[in-house]
Amino acid sequence: MREQVTPESASAIERADEVLYLVTQPLTAQWIERANPRSRSLHGLYESGKPRRETYAEMVDELLAPVRAGLDICAAFYGHPGVFVNPGHEAIRRARAEGYPARMLPAVSALDCLVADLGIDPAATGLHSYEATDFVVYRRRPDPTALLVLWQIGVVGELGYATSPRRENVALVVDRLLRAYPRGHEVIVYEASPYPLVADPFVLRVALEQLPDAQLPLLATLVVPPARRPRRDRALMARLGLN
């Protein structure tokens, strides 16, 4: 749907010689194809068992081939084209390296939606975020005084397609979080609405220890509010004249 597509992006889609897209909602695909009949999906490049890096490389090749043929190409991705979209960045880097002008247009990501829907201002507490699998694999240390956002909490440990969250994997994230947050700390399972005119976002507030048993959409993001206030450095404040 085009409600959250910027006018700049909509214009790029409409005017391109060819649009290659990757989206999750059928209605979004339908809108893109109506906006520009010279559109085609990149989903066919996904195959069960194919290494993900191979799929990414093929997507980049698919995007660059018409560019090399002299066409004006628009690549459209779900959410923000530069947030969790490896081929988006790589295609631009390669195009520029080969001498073709290329640029990324900013868009609305899940983070932008949750700030608006949940009434959270990242400036108030600070913000740190990780991809959920990355968070556990690399033993990230959360700062319980700042807002934490964990992307893709519904697909922890999944390297390919998933149809439902693996709760034992979600439990591993919870174990990691329990080192910094109390068991009863309220966390928020969030999914932005791709149809904001008619559908509300998915918002579920649940105690951290109950997260593995909670309803968890595949596209969900986990929001962990701060558990306590940060401590002031009074000596530094004095040096800054902030007393």
């Binding site: 990757l22 999750t24 999906s41 998933a162 559908a199 959409p217």
Partner: peptide, 28 residues
């Protein structure tokens, strides 16, 4: 206004459309 219900109804209406769930997983 239930997101899950509305998405499910749309997917039922457009079964032949070229769309699938996809995930971009970041690997360091």
């Amino acid at each position: 206004r239930d997101l899950g219900k509305i998405k499910a109804a749309l997917e039922k209406e457009l079964p032949g459309r070229d769309f699938m769930m996809f995930m971009i997983i970041f690997h360091s």
